[in-house]
């Protein structure tokens, strides 16, 4: 279990979901003649002028609007993503510059498949909890790509969230503890210079997603001495609708506890942003005293589990920025051809 020397929490949070939606039925229309089940209803697609950087900036601005802190007191800007715009040149320095946190801050880009965002939060807990710095901006954001026709194309989506980690006494929700669980499990990867990821099909389930999510969640609750019934909400990494539903069930949670943070049916799998944006949707509704269990998952593989308790401050800050559901409600449906253009799948030269 990871527990900082000084209590830390979430001082501000912000989400971002792009405007465009590709219905899963569109992918099926093109690749399976419309046959077969659909893993979600629709996924969020970044526009031509959006990428992990632009979406990170907006989520960060939303988090700052809620936190209302002195931005120059941010001591680290960490962006977790598998779709950084540059292979070499940090996304995080551009975010830091855009929000006014540069120059006296740490900045780095993180990669751990879908777990890179929660990784940034755990690291932020370390900085703040050791009192090395007052605030850390931790972001999980992606413009995930699935190979055309692959099962992942139905769900690989764009979006994510930003969190300002800070001292517990300023926080809207406090981290009671975290726990990380990693193994070498080759369920999904993308080699350097490859456009699209490869995966182990059904191997991504039991030995990868379920093993890590369930173990991390169980271990954290055991070490904290909590039960599923102690939590009002549970937020899990959500690559599709079924995986988090089943994992929640195995962990002993009821569907009502999962529902608020389960966004994958309407925005898809936002990879490094997936569990983080689920948490923002929960914070948009949670009340003081509510507890939240969040468990991320990243292929390769690992999970970070967090036990979170909402404070009295949440109701004050909630409406200082758009809610996650505001972004979800802002939607424009696109067809597969437009999606192909927007996600740069057309060979132009």
């Amino acid at each position: 279990m990871l527990k900082p020397a000084h209590d830390v929490g979430i001082v501000g949070y912000g989400a971002y979901v792009p405007r465009f939606r590709l219905p899963a039925s569109e992918v099926a229309r093109v690749w399976t003649d419309g046959t077969g089940g659909l893993p979600i209803k629709e996924k969020a697609v970044a526009g031509l002028d959006e990428d992990t950087l632009t979406m990170s900036v907006e989520a960060a601005r939303n988090a700052l609007a809620r936190a209302q802190i002195d931005v120059t007191q941010i001591r680290a800007v960490w962006v977790g993503s598998e779709s950084h715009p540059y292979a070499v040149k940090p996304t995080s320095t551009i975010v830091a510059e855009a929000i006014g946190a540069a120059p006296f801050t740490q900045a780095a880009d993180l990669e751990f498949a879908c777990k890179a965002g929660s990784e940034a939060i755990v690291m932020g807990m370390g900085i703040v909890g050791s009192q090395m710095g007052r605030y850390v901006l931790a972001i999980g954001m992606d413009t995930a790509q699935g190979r055309p026709g692959d099962a992942l194309e139905y769900t690989a989506a764009s979006g994510g969230a930003a969190f300002i980690v800070g001292p517990a006494e300023e926080s809207v929700a406090v981290y009671e503890a975290a726990l990380s669980h990693v193994t070498d499990t080759p369920d999904f990867w993308r080699r350097a210079y490859s456009h699209y990821p490869s995966h182990g099909h059904r191997f991504t389930g039991e030995p990868a997603y379920f093993e890590h999510v369930v173990s991390a969640g169980q271990e954290l609750m055991q070490e904290l001495g909590t039960q599923p019934s102690d939590y009002k909400y549970v937020v899990l990494h959500q690559p599709n609708t079924k995986f988090p539903q089943r994992a929640a069930q195995i962990l002993g949670f009821q569907p009502e506890q999962l529902k608020t943070g389960l966004l994958v049916p309407v925005i898809g799998n936002t990879y490094a942003g997936s569990s983080l944006i689920g948490l923002t949707a929960v914070l948009d509704e949670a009340q003081p005293g509510d507890r939240i269990l969040m468990v991320s998952f990243g292929s390769g593989a690992g999970s970070d589990a967090f036990s979170i308790r909402v404070t009295d401050k949440l109701n004050e800050v909630r409406d200082r920025a758009p809610r996650t559901q505001d972004y979800i409600a802002r939607r424009k449906l696109i067809d597969y051809a437009t999606y192909v253009r927007y996600r740069h799948k057309l060979q132009m030269n």
């Binding site: 405007r19 031509l48 002028d49 959006e50 632009t54 551009i94 855009a98 758009p322 505001d326 802002r330």
Partner: peptide
């Protein structure tokens, strides 16, 4: 937002754009 990019290998130019107020668009 992204304003332009210099091909697949060059720098990406980011800058300001404007959009309808988010909450009214939702």
């Amino acid at each position: 937002r992204k304003l332009s990019q210099e091909g697949e290998e060059g720098q990406i130019l980011y800058g300001y754009k404007f959009r309808p107020m988010l909450r009214e668009a939702a």
